[in-house]
Structure formats: structure tokens, C-alpha cells
Design a binder for these strands. Structure first.
Lengths: 241, 241
DNA sequence: CATCACAATGGCACTCAGTGCGCTCAATTG
DNA sequence: CAATTGAGCGCACTGAGTGCCATTGTGATG
């Protein structure tokens, strides 16, 4: 009765979009935004969506999950992306690209992302849930790096710290963009932030960009100079991008 | 009746130790270890402790909190420690010392810490809770650094990334020690890991080692050269680390 | 000594998230 | 046309967490 047009939706969307799932997400966010997360019960959501209470938990294992409906997919995408890496790729650059993948998931739906950001900022329970999601991303990146750094001295330590740095840089750019209500170029900010950490952890950067312009900078440095300082000096020498 | 010797306990412990709190922690861990966290209800705990159910929630806002009874105090200690910093201190070194403070809290009770580690490793809910605790530590460190880096270009970014790196290094050392059942020198491992991080993020290198060698490398590069290429060339010029 | 104030505790009832189970109804398939 | 299957629904149940009030023990005060 209520879901009479489920067949229609499936016909238009093809395979991957269960209609009820979307209806629940829409109902949930409508209520979360107008009366708050904790003031909204599951019963409120399913009533508004016009479905049975039990169905909610068939699509979302918990109340928190409805707030992050796409992260499970993004995590799977990231895993696949890393597994598809060539052995010749620079691991750190690869991990940065994986982070960009997640960022893109946010920037594809600016208004949704900003609404969710406001929610998670207010509700401690949601913040905790988001942390566990971020932890899974970071853990995935660290596992990948650990494999690539296995030969190195302190490879596991390096893997953990690089993963944490990349995630922190990504989050810094993401949160700036979210605080600005989804205005501005999040990708560019992420590129800057990620370049900052890759500079410190000595590795490579994505190719791209046009390789002309022949202004030249000369940098003199010495052994044991931290790499971030080299990068800073070069950037200073190159002037504003 | 059941708590007839409450006065005794208070007489021995003096002021800062509510006896019931300790009794609840002891009862909870006994049950958690012998039958598991999720298989233990609040009623089980309060029955074993011989107190009323309502009293549990007077001392611990949630079931998870009883597993981390000391973190609130440690967080307060860290905040106080950072606020007591002199302006002349190196902020990064100070933050590392703050991390060592937390590590010490773990190493002071090895068996307790290891037991808790085994619990949090198994129970997703506890892992999520621990993440939120770690997040508060990291946030505290980042706030401190943000204040000290305010003048710098990209100060906030740097603060976030350094804090994340320090926490990751700390956790790496801590988890190694926990996996080894509290055997080995956690402090030394933390020193190594933190030196690794500070080496990358500050001008000062782990002090040790021979600080001579003034080999110099000159790099000539041009505008829009990808930074990874600069780094690669500098590293090539500097030779093996 | 009586009693009053006060804080700590216990007991009770309630809300709500999450689960297990069995039912219905529809579409598919032999 | 059965038989099967799977999605959705309803219901009852567990357990965490909360609000409210009665009780009890303690110390101060008349």
C-alpha cells in the first residue's frame, strides 16, 4: 500500500537503490533537522515514512547508521581502490588519492554533507559514530601502507603515522569546507593540505598540472635538514601558486 | 546492610576514593572478564557489588564508562599540564610530554591496562568509546598547538596534523606494549616513536646521533614543478639517510 | 536527647533502542 | 496451479538509561 511504487523506483534506478531505504533516510533527516536527533524516535521516523518499525532495522543496524548512509560504500570503494594499486605506485600518493576519494563523496552532495555536519557537531553520540567511521578509513590506509613499508625500518610506525597525518589533513580541509557551508574549493584545499604532509613525510605528489613556466629557484640545503623545511623553502622561492 | 563497612573503607582511603565506585569497577571487570562485556548486564554488576542499580548510574553515566574509569582524570591532568607551559617551551616537545603523561597512566597499572585492552579489542562498542576518548586527547593537543601556531601560515593545519601524528606515535608504542602483555619498556618505545614524529615536524632532530656532516646539496627547480619531484631530487642529493 | 537538615542510596516505573520470531502477502517458478 | 521465496509487518521481549520519591545514615543544632 504505502510502497506501491517500489517497482517504479526500481525500474528507474535499476538495481542498487532500494526505495524504502531512501524514504527512511529522507524521513529521518527531515525530523532530525526540525526537532533534533535525540528528540526523534525510531517510531517517529517509520511513522513519517509510512513503514513498519521493524523495517527500519532491516536497512540500518542502528539509529546512527541512518545519518551515514554512504560510508559503508565509500569504505568498500577505498578498499578496492587500494587493492587495485600497482606495485610501482608511490604508496603515500596512493593513500592521498584514496583520501580524495572520500572527500569527493562529501562534495558530491554539499547540502546533505553540511546538514549532517551540523548534526554531528551537536550530538555526541553521532560524533562518536563518525569517529569510528574515520577510524576504519585510517585503519584501511594504515594496513595498506604497512604492507608497502614492511621492508623498511619502523615500517609499521611509519605506516600508522603517515595514515594519521593524511587523515588529519583530509579532515582539516573537509571541515573547513563544511564550516563554510560547502562554499569554496574543497579539492584544492585538500591538495594543499595533503601536499603539506607528503612534503614532511617525503614522498610524491600527483602528476597533473602543466609543466611550463621556467622561473627558476635554487635551494641550498644540507644533510639532516627536515624535508618539510626544504619544501617550505622551495615553495617560498616559487612564490604564490 | 551490604555496605556496612563503607565507613572503614573511607577511613583507610581518606578523601578522594569513593568506596562504591571502586567496588563497582571491581565487580564489573570480574564479570566482564569471566563472561564477556555484552553478556554482562548492569543488574549483574550491581548484584555482585551488593548495591542498588540506580547507584551505578550515579557513578558512571554509561556502561562503557566503567571500563575507562581514569580517563576523565587523565584528560584533566593533560589540560592542566598544557596550561602550565611556558611560552618559551617548544610546543611540539610539550605536546609529546603530554602524550607521555597518558602513557604513564597505562603503564602504572599494567595488568589492568592489558585486561582492558583485550576487552576493547573484542567489543566494538568499547572500541568506539575509546576512540572518542582518544579524540578528546588529540583535540586538546591540537587546541594547544593551534594557539602556539596562530601566527604561522597554515598554523591550524599544522596543529591538527602534528597532534594526529603525535597521537598515532603514542598509540603505536602503547599498543605494542599492550600486545606484549605489558612486558618491555613502553616509555622507551614511545620516546623512539615520538622522536620519529618530531624529527619530521620540527627543526630539531632526535638530538642523539652525530649532528655533524655538512654536506650540501643544490637543487635547481622551476615553477610548477611537482613538489614530489623536488623532494625526490633533494633526497637523491642528500644520499642514503 | 530529640530533631532537623542533608546527602547518599535504594526502589520503582517509564522511555526507547534493538532483537527474535512468526505471520501475511506478493512475485516467481516448477 | 501449487510451492517457494523474500520483503514487509506486528508483537513481545531484553536491557540501557532517566526521573521521581521514599528511606536511611550522619552530623549539626536546639
Amino acid at each position: 500500500m504505502t510502497n506501491a511504487r517500489k517497482a517504479d523506483a526500481e525500474a528507474t534506478a535499476g538495481a542498487p537503490k532500494p526505495a524504502m531505504r531512501e524514504a527512511l533516510i529522507a524521513a529521518a533527516f527531515q525530523l532530525f533537522l526540525e526537532r533534533g536527533y535525540e528528540q526523534t524516535t525510531i517510531d517517529d521516523i517509520v511513522t513519517l515514512a509510512g513503514v513498519g518499525r521493524r523495517s527500519f532495522f532491516r536497512y540500518f543496524p542502528s539509529k546512527e547508521d541512518v545519518v551515514f548512509p554512504d560510508h559503508e560504500q565509500a569504505l568498500a570503494d577505498m578498499t578496492a581502490f587500494l587493492q587495485a594499486s600497482a606495485d610501482t605506485d608511490d604508496p603515500v600518493a596512493r593513500v592521498c588519492d584514496a583520501a580524495r576519494l572520500v572527500l569527493r563523496m562529501y562534495t558530491e552532495n554539499p547540502t546533505f554533507s553540511v546538514q549532517r555536519y551540523r548534526l554531528t557537531k551537536k550530538v555526541p553520540g553521532l560524533r562518536a559514530y563518525e569517529l569510528s567511521v574515520v577510524w576504519r578509513y585510517e585503519h584501511t590506509l594504515a594496513d595498506f601502507l604497512r604492507g608497502r613499508f614492511a621492508a623498511r625500518r619502523d615500517g609499521a610506525l611509519r605506516a600508522n603515522v603517515v595514515a594519521a597525518s593524511v587523515v588529519a589533513a583530509h579532515n582539516h580541509a573537509l571541515r573547513s569546507w563544511l564550516r563554510a557551508n560547502g562554499q569554496g574549493d574543497a579539492e584544492a584545499a585538500a591538495d594543499r593540505a595533503l601536499a603539506y604532509v607528503t612534503g614532511a613525510w617525503t614522498s610524491q605528489q600527483p602528476a597533473s598540472d602543466n609543466p611550463e613556466e621556467d622561473d627558476v629557484v635554487i635551494v641550498i640545503t644540507r644533510r639532516r635538514t627536515p624535508m618539510w623545511r626544504v619544501v617550505r623553502d622551495v615553495e617560498a622561492g616559487l612564490g604564490p601558486e
